[in-house]
Amino acid sequence: MSFSDRDLPGDGTITALFSCGACGREMAMLTNPMETQLVTSLGVEIGGRTVPEQPLQQTRSRLDAPRDDAFVDEEASLAGDPGSSSTIPATEHEFVRIRVTWTSEATDRLAGVPKFVRGMVKRIYTEYAQEKQIEVITPDVMDRARSDLGLEGM
C-alpha cells in the first residue's frame, strides 16, 4: 500500500487514501477532527511536508481573527502588479531558479487571499513554479499546485 491522495472534507477531518501498486485496491483512512487538530497543532503536516514550512505558518493559519494588515511583503510588487516577477532566495529545496511572472488573472486570484497569509501563499506558488520550471503562473498552475502540494487547507 502506498499513499496516493488526501482530502479535507471540510468538517475538520482528513481523508487519506492508500492504494496497492500490485492489485490496485484502495483503502481510505478517516481521522476524527480532534485527532487531526491535535496533531496539526504540533505544526506538522499529516502525510508529510510537501513544501518548506513558512515563517509563522502555524500561527498565521490558525488565528481566527487576524489583523489583515499585520504583514507587509518584502516585494512592493506583490500586492497586485500584473506580470510581476519574483526571485526567491535559495532554500534547502534547491533547483534552478527561473524568472517567474504572474498573469493578471492569477494576480487577481491571489488578491483574494487574505493579506495576512498572502505573502506566504505567493511564495509557495512561486517556489512550485520554479521547481517545475514554469515561467508563467496562471490560475491553472495555481490549481495544479494546490492539488500537488496538498494545499486544500491553506
Binding site: P55, L56, D69, A70, F71, V72, D73, E74, I88, P89, T91, G119, M120, R123
Partner: peptide
C-alpha cells in the same frame, strides 16, 4: 507591520 520574508518575519 511585520515584514514577511522567506527567511522569517
Amino acid at each position: 507591520q511585520l515584514e514577511d520574508r522567506p527567511d522569517g518575519i
